[in-house]
Amino acid sequence: MKGFILSFRSEFYKTRKTMGFWSAVLLPLLLCLLLFIGFFNKSDQLAQLPGFMLWLRFAGAILGVMGSLLLPMLIIFIAYSVNSIEHKADTWKTLFSLPIPKLSVYAAKYFYAFFLVLLCLALFVVFTLGFGNLLSVLKPSLKFNEYNIANTLSHLYFKLFLSSLGILSIQFLLSLLFRDFLKPMGIGFICTITGVILAGNGWTYAYLFPYSHPLLALKALQQGKEAHPGSMPSITVDMLTKDTWVSLAVAVAVFIIGYFIVLKKSVK
């Protein structure tokens, strides 16, 4: 366990000045900021919307692309950046000749990639809520304060995180095995497009394909859009659907397979 903590801290120390780390912070900040500016300028047209719908527009603008494109691409990039730092510096051999169990070194890297995705999604929640509330302070005509979406939003993003673990583990393994960016990127891109097509067309078995999971996770949003204006609108997030279970199972399986590949693989 000590080896794991040391390795995890070292992962942070190494990446804290790289794009891999900062993209997880800057992406939510910039996207939410853009949205904030957009809403701020168009506040007149948005003033008649009730609080719930306003939040749905605000958060939905990002969530809409999140499932189909943003999250898979972010995952591909993070999985690559965590591994490429060692490929580039030729440091796999030093990592695996440290007096630290190989499992700890490998697991620390794996969980650091998870951590970056979690951090990024958590910041999306924080910035969405922050900028939304800031809007209602600056433009009182926007009734963001009428509805508290914090709970729903954090549930939704947490479900997104769980549904991303399957892809993340696959991309992690690809980036560990291949030195160049094109292979994991190309495979990931094709799989993402396939996943979107499968989930978008409501194929029955889409839940078995990890790259469909983010889009499936956002199905809950549909309910909100269909809500009647009269009734009390709400979104219920069903946290553990079967696609989420598949995603978790894939993550565990790939983690174990990856470990045995690392053990067998001759270190360059």
């Binding site: 790289t18 510096a89 000749s97």
Partner: peptide, 16 residues
């Protein structure tokens, strides 16, 4: 391994 220091081929250094 805790009592070995090693340098293999070109040194492994993080350029950034």
């Amino acid at each position: 391994l805790s009592q070995i220091g090693s340098l293999i081929e070109q040194p492994a250094i993080y350029a950034h």
